[in-house]
Each structure stands twice: as structure tokens, then as C-alpha cells.
Design a protein around this nucleic acid. Structure first.
Lengths: 228, 228
DNA sequence: GTTATTTTTTACCGATCGTTAAAAATCTTA
DNA sequence: TAAGATTTTTAACGATCGGTAAAAAATAAC
């Protein structure tokens, strides 16, 4: 990365073009959309600026005009994705305390899976780049992923009144996140060993079953069932 | 991949060189060792033949002399790694039935973590390439990873007499594998969000605690405790 | 010790990568 | 419509990639 900076920032024409026509999407947004698509298919180091350019229907150097480096573009995509996820995650807890642990967990997972179906790219970008971000092979902005998980953990502890130790709560949430991120971000793999289709309703049901099966016992306990 | 084949296979001198000296390592083994190291640091598409050559202390085209393509070299490394893991995994079950579920699980995890500490590369190669092997971005020999997990599942069901349905058993084993693979293969990430050092005893203790915490309730149940 | 064979190195191919610079096209403003 | 600013394309740079071919070195066979 030898370049400091090249020209002044984009500075869109004059404020806003605003045509009455079918709201022609701004180039910057078009690039972000294409980048999200490509980064959801290929890990950071395998995705290329040229792929993104092609997906956006533009020549690839134009990307450098709006995003000086590939790393900055990726960070922007990651920031948008984790924020979208974070906001959605908060809403999944709404009204959950009215139900018993089993019903509440099932409802939470339903909402979560619904989001995952509608926004598969968000999930996959995180899954794809979480593991390789180790050692020598640094993924730009992977701190964002760590921050994201810390924030969702906070959301959880604030939304659900648990009685166990901090240690127990962290183990439970980390397990849930790990299982969820893998089952949804590596669908092809898991569906493969299960003999199912990655996009099938059957597989999503398996994910739901599995999450409930593994999480429910300890969740019940942490919610204060004293019958242990 | 345009090349069909170049020359006849290696065909080591005449059978075996066998010097009485300090057992000079054969080049092929040196390459495999270096490849294992590099593939444990970088996912398949980011690792390069040149990196492996450098790690082995040879010029990179020599690698093509022993392994015609990068894909074949990777498959060989993957095959050796999963086999080593598979063999070790069988031994972890020895004598476990003498103990109650809690002690037995703890002992199994101890043996497993001991292996993971001694052979971190094996674990990491699997973790690094499991997720990206989706969609367009094919990892050569990733069928080996699927087969490996199917085999370990068989080992488990044969070694441990469980009473639940097949569905329950699959969910439990898949969860265990997923958590273990992630916690050990993505140590830096998890240790990071936990505020620990990836190589520390403290982190390994957390992994053990977490696995027991999440697995034990359902394991107890499947082992036939009727007090549920 | 000479020849034949195997192993290793050197040099290079075409392809792709991220990025840069300059030309061309488009839009804004007058 | 002319001048100026902004956006987009074209062309190219240096670096790296997997792989190939031929020369060089090392070893084996005789």
C-alpha cells in the first residue's frame, strides 16, 4: 500500500442530483451493493476489485475514485453489514419476556432465521472473514467483527434477566453465536454432511432444532429454574 | 489448469537411499511439512507455492516436480492431516465407559485439547478451509473434510452407547465439532473477545469449561439418565 | 572415470492483482 | 454555447500468481 491519497474526495456534483425519474442510484451506492455481493461470496483476499466493478456494471478503477483502497471499501461494507445486523438483533428481543424459556427461545430463533433468510450476505461476510483474520493474514476492519459480537452480547444481557455468573452467560452466548454463524454462514458444508439442500426449509428447520436443543437446557437454568 | 502431465512421477533414486547419517529428510517430506505450515496460516487461495518453497528452503518449481499442481499438494496435506486427526480421535474414547458422563466427557476433552496443543496445524487447516469451501470458491479435496467428520461421527456412535434418536445424536455431535473446531482453529478471535491470550492455559481452560457446559446436559440425557 | 539418470535451479510464460495517471465524457454554471 | 468542474473510461505500472521448459547440478550405474 504505497499510496497516501490521490485527489480530493468525491464531492457529489452539487449536493444532490435528484431527478424525477426512477431514482437513478448513485454510483457509490451501486459499488457498495456490488461489493457486498462479492464479499459475501469470496473472502477478502480472494475477492477482487475487478469482480466488484463487473458486478456493479462499471470499470473497476472507478471504485478507487470513491474508495481509495480495497481495504477501505471492505471496512465500509463490514461496517454497514454489522450495523444492520446489530439493529435487527435488538428487535428480536421485543416482547420475549412474556413467554416461557422454550417459547421465547423458539420465537427469538424464528426472528433470527427470518433475518438470515432475507439478508444472507450479512451473515456470510462475517462468517467468511472471521476465521482467516488470524495470525499473518489480516482482514481489514476485523476489529469491527469483534466489536459487533461484544455489542450483541451486551444487548442480550440487557434484554434477558439471567441469574447465573458472568462466566456462564458468556459461555452460553458465545456458543449460540458460534453455532448460528457457522450453521448459516457455511450452509453448503453443514447441509452437505446432513444430506440436505443448503437453501431448503428442511435445513433451516434443522438449524432451529439444533439451536434450541443445545441452548435450552442452560438457558432454562440461567433463567432461574431452581429445580436443578 | 492447462497441463495434463509433464514427466513421469518422481521415482526416488533406486528404492531407498538409506544413509547411516542423521537421516537426511527426503525432499518430498520437507515440502509436505512446509506446506502443512503454510496451509495452516493461510487459506488455500491465499497460500502460494512460492511461500511453501521458501518455507521448505527450496526453489518453488521443485514443488511441481513432486506435486504436479497446488491442488494435489493441498489434497495430500489435507489427507494426512485428517487421517492423523481421525486416528487420534479413536484413541480418545479408550476406557471412557468406566466413568460417569461428567468425568468421561472431561477426560475426552482433556485428551482432545492435548492433541490440539501438540498438533495445532491439523486443526487450523480444517478450520481455515471449511467455511470458504462454499459456492463458487472451491477448495480442492474439501470432500475429505466432509468425509472426516462423517467418520468421526461414526466413531462416536460406536464408542458411546447413546439412547436418543439419531436426530438428537447428530445435533449433539455436530454442535460439539462446530464449537471445538472454532474455538481451537480461531483462537485469536475468541481469545480476543474474551480478553485472554490465544496460547494461554487460561484460554484452553475456558474452551474446556465451555464445551463441558454446553455438551453435558444433553449428553447425560442421551446416556440414559431417566431423571429428566 | 565416464555415461546415464534423477534432482534442482534458472528463466520465463500468460494471467491476475491493486493502484495510478491521463484522456475522454458528462455535467454545472455562466 | 463556452468555460470550468466533476465523473468515468482507457491504458498502463509493478508485483505476484501457478505452471512450464530447459539448463545445471547432483547422484547412480557401469
Amino acid at each position: 500500500m504505497p499510496s497516501p491519497q490521490k485527489t480530493n474526495p468525491p464531492k457529489k456534483r452539487s449536493a444532490i442530483p435528484r431527478k424525477k425519474g426512477p431514482h437513478k442510484k448513485l454510483t457509490r451506492e451501486k459499488i457498495l451493493e456490488a461489493a457486498t455481493k462479492v464479499f459475501a461470496e469470496y473472502p477478502y483476499h480472494s475477492a477482487s476489485i475487478r469482480m466488484i466493478g463487473k458486478a456493479a456494471g462499471i470499470e473497476h478503477p472507478l471504485i478507487n475514485y470513491y474508495f481509495p483502497t480495497k481495504a477501505l471499501l471492505f471496512e465500509e461494507v463490514l461496517k454497514i453489514s454489522t450495523e444492520k445486523y446489530y439493529i435487527a438483533n435488538i428487535s428480536w428481543f421485543e416482547g420475549l419476556t412474556k413467554f416461557d424459556p422454550e417459547k421465547g427461545l423458539a420465537l427469538y430463533i424464528d426472528r433470527f432465521l427470518d433475518f438470515a433468510l432475507k439478508h444472507p450476505k450479512v451473515q456470510r461476510i462475517i462468517t467468511l472473514n472471521l476465521v482467516p483474520a488470524e495470525q499473518s493474514n489480516i482482514i481489514p476492519g476485523y476489529q469491527l467483527i469483534q466489536n459487533f459480537f461484544e455489542k450483541t452480547t451486551r444487548t442480550f444481557t440487557q434484554a434477558v434477566p439471567l441469574k447465573g455468573s458472568k462466566h456462564e452467560i458468556v459461555m452460553l452466548i458465545t456458543s449460540f453465536n458460534t453455532l448460528a454463524v457457522n450453521y448459516l454462514g457455511a450452509r453448503t458444508y453443514y447441509a452437505g454432511i446432513l444430506g440436505m439442500e443448503p437453501g431448503s426449509h428442511q435445513y433451516m428447520e434443522w438449524v432451529k432444532d439444533s439451536l434450541i436443543y443445545m441452548i435450552l437446557p442452560r438457558l432454562k437454568q440461567l433463567l432461574g429454574e431452581t429445580d436443578r
